[in-house]
Each structure stands twice: as C-alpha cells, then as structure tokens.
Computed example of a mutant assay.
Amino acid sequence: MIKADAKIETRARLMEKALRRAHVRVTRQRAALLRVIAASEDHPDATELHARADAAGAGVSLATVYRTLTTLMAQGVIEKLEFEGEPARWEAADQNHHDHMIDIETGAVIEFTNDRIEALQAEIAREMGFEIVRHRLDLYVRRLPETGR
C-alpha cells in the first residue's frame, strides 16, 4: 500500500499547490478534505465527499467542499463529471484516459477503456477532416437479464 499512499500524498500536494495558486488559504480542515478527495477511487459527489471528510474529522462545511471543488476544477487538477439526472461527481484529472458506463438502475459508474472504440473515433474524425483533441464517452447502461447461460 506504500505506492497507493504515495499517490494519495502526491495528489493532495498538487491540490494544495493549486489552491495556493488560486490564493485560497489551506486550513487544517481544507488539507484534510484534500486528502479525502485525493484518496477517492470512485466518483463521489460533493455530499459524499463532505460525509467522508466529516468521518475523517475534517470539520469542514458543505459550502467549503463546493468552493474547494470549484477551485480545484478551475485549476485543472480535478474534473467534474455530469451524468444525466445525477449530482455532479468528481475525479482526479491525473488519470489515464478512460470512458464511463453509468448503470441507470444503480447509479454505479464503471470506468473502461477500449482500443477499438478509440481507433474508431479517430478514424471517423479523420474521415471528416478532423483530429480528436479530447473527448469523453459516457454510456448509459442497464444490466442484461440473466439468460441462464
């Protein structure tokens, strides 16, 4: 787990630097919140992050969570994910490119990569005289019923 802990610490330091660049004071509570955000392996919304920060003893208000997330997004260290009918979710911007499947029944967000999809998107863009600069693919899915196979 040393590697995972180092990754969390690195992310938290990057977030702290981003807040300082934005002239936001990094209080003890906000530093604890940054560790919670940096440790998130899923796609939490602000309320979930607030609850996790509370459980970690951060004592930070929900308004501070929202302000911090907005600042971190503006600084480019986290990304805001907006899925239909769901509150905004957040993930670290330092991840390798991936796409998302959103289970419409459970709200679960599943990350995936697929070389064929990436190649097809690039081919379509090329055929139309473009190159892809960046993209995001969100698939809204429902689990197939059991077929007995």
Rank of each mutant, 00 (worst) to 15 (best):
A39N: 11
R52K: 15
M73L: 10
V26Y: 06
R11Q: 06
A92N: 06
D5I: 04
D45A: 12
A55E: 15
L49C: 11
D99R: 03
L62I: 14
E79N: 12
T71V: 12
K80Y: 06
N96A: 14
G85C: 08
A58C: 07
I2N: 09
A93S: 13
T47V: 11
S61E: 11
N96H: 04
R52Y: 13
A93C: 02
L34T: 03
R20Y: 00
I2Y: 07
A58D: 09
V77N: 08
A93D: 04
L69H: 08
I78P: 03
V36A: 13
A46P: 02
A88C: 05
E91Q: 12
E16S: 15
L72K: 03
V65N: 06
P44L: 10
K7V: 13
A4S: 13
M101T: 01
L81F: 07
Q75S: 14
R13I: 03
E105D: 15
H23D: 11
D103P: 04
A6Y: 08
T47L: 14
V24M: 04
R30G: 04
I37L: 12
Q29H: 12
V65I: 14
R67V: 04
A31S: 14
D42F: 07
A6L: 14
A56V: 10
I78D: 05
T64I: 05
R11F: 08
A32R: 09
A74S: 11
E91V: 06
P44W: 11
A74L: 06
A63Q: 13
D94P: 00
I102Q: 01
A55R: 15
T71C: 13
V24Q: 07
W90I: 05
T47G: 09
L14T: 03
S40N: 10
A32H: 02
R21S: 10
H43A: 11
E91N: 02
A38C: 04
Q95T: 02
A53V: 08
D54G: 14
Q75D: 12
M73A: 15
T106H: 04
M101F: 06
D94R: 00
G76K: 04
I102P: 01
H97P: 09
I104K: 08
E84C: 01
M1P: 02
P44I: 08
A92I: 00
I37H: 05
A18G: 02
A32I: 02
A32F: 00
Q95V: 03
R52A: 15
Q29K: 09
G85M: 07
L72D: 06
A46R: 05
H23I: 00
K80F: 05
E86D: 09
A32K: 13
E82Q: 10
R67K: 15
R67Y: 13
D42G: 12
V36C: 14
H23Y: 02
R30C: 06
A92F: 07
G76T: 08
R20K: 08
A63T: 10
W90R: 01
E41D: 11
A51M: 13
I2F: 10
E16H: 07
A51T: 11
A46E: 11
V36T: 13
G76Q: 07
E86Y: 02
E86S: 05
R13V: 07
E82W: 01
L72A: 09
